[in-house]
Write a protein that binds this DNA or RNA. Structure first.
Length: 313
DNA sequence: GACCAGGTGCCAG
DNA sequence: CTGGCACATGGT
């Protein structure tokens, strides 16, 4: 393709019940770059290897990308416009706090992200805030990813590329102890010993076990990947936030796996979706978890673990 | 400066 | 099986 034509394909598609900003900033994907208002607003990023600029105006989504990338279908699939959000919202109408969160997060969709990109991104996630995961993932793209002419964000590097890097090179992207897991997982996939595509036809349980066999992936990260890349909409990743929330619904000192099963049961067939609504509300301070939190962490003192109360703002 | 972040792996009881 | 701890980094 000639350079002059890059990024010249424009169009618009309908996007009912969709909030682009909310979806891209909800902590399921990490590389989309906001465009300043003075430059027209919106976000630039890649859907797999295909770069695109997106701008939402009400129920319309304007896109700009490369000729021949079949962007409308790609976009609809990536953002899962086929998910029926009304059904999902109503699936938790029996649980007030969840229902409130679902209404507040109207238009937040669980995406279908490319498998490897999602696996790698969540290997970066342990003990990091969303903003930091974003930094690391962008650093990997800048350092190892393929540049996409006319667009600021490079593609996510293939497993083969990361597999041939050194752990030290990965650490220079700010990964810290996560570099080892990412390198190990890259190698297993690059060598063919692990095939992300094979999980598609597995049961959720089998797929989770497969993911947990990769270095740097435990149950929480596996559930994120299942939810955000393999359409397992009932998968419940139990992180610190969800543990607090579910713990306040139920009781303190349940194991993460107990909380996960409790969440699956409480939140229903779309538990992963509802979990994401609760996660977003809690993380953005719209679910108030009462402040007894810092007291529960003093190393030596008696562990007076009071349950944190959950209140809707 | 302490505290916390979309946890995992490993080792001792 | 459970509890405890090291592991890196960057922002409040």
């Amino acid at each position: 393709m000639k350079p002059g034509q890059l990024g010249q394909k424009k169009g618009v598609i309908e996007c009912p019940e969709f909030d682009l900003r909310l979806t891209l900033e909800s902590g399921q994907t990490f590389h989309w770059m906001p465009v300043s208002e003075s430059n027209g607003g919106g976000y630039t990023g890649c859907i797999g290897k295909k770069p695109v600029l997106l701008r939402q105006e009400g129920q319309l989504l304007h896109y700009q990308g490369n000729e021949g990338d079949h962007l409308p279908d790609l976009i609809r699939h990536y953002f899962a416009f086929d998910h029926d959000l009304d059904v999902i919202r109503d699936s938790c109408s029996g649980h007030p706090a969840s229902f409130d969160a679902a209404i507040a997060c109207h238009g937040l969709r669980i995406m279908r992200q490319p498998h490897w990109e999602c696996i790698a991104s969540f290997i970066l996630s342990p003990m990091k805030q969303v903003a930091h995961i974003r930094q690391m993932s962008l650093a990997l793209r800048e350092t190892f990813g393929k540049k996409l002419p006319g667009f600021p964000v490079p593609a996510f590097p293939e497993p083969q590329v990361l597999a041939s890097a050194t752990e030290e090179e990965l650490r220079q992207c700010g990964l810290g102890f996560r570099a080892k897991g990412l390198l190990g997982s890259s190698r297993l996939i690059a060598s063919g010993a692990f095939d992300p595509e094979a999980l598609i036809t597995m049961s959720t349980e089998e797929a989770r076990n497969a993911l947990c066999s990769l270095p740097g992936i435990g149950r929480k990260v596996a559930n994120c990947i299942l939810l955000f890349s393999y359409e397992r909409l009932n998968a419940v990743p139990v992180d610190v936030w969800i543990a607090r929330i579910l713990g306040s619904f139920r009781s303190r000192k349940a194991t993460p796996e107990q909380l996960e099963r409790y969440g699956e049961k409480l939140l229903g067939p779309y538990a992963g979706y509802i979990q994401q609504y609760l996660f977003h509300q809690a993380r953005t301070g719209k679910l108030l978890l009462s402040k007894a939190s810092s007291a529960a962490k003093s190393p030596k003192k008696s562990p007076s673990k009071q349950p944190r109360r959950l209140v809707t703002a």
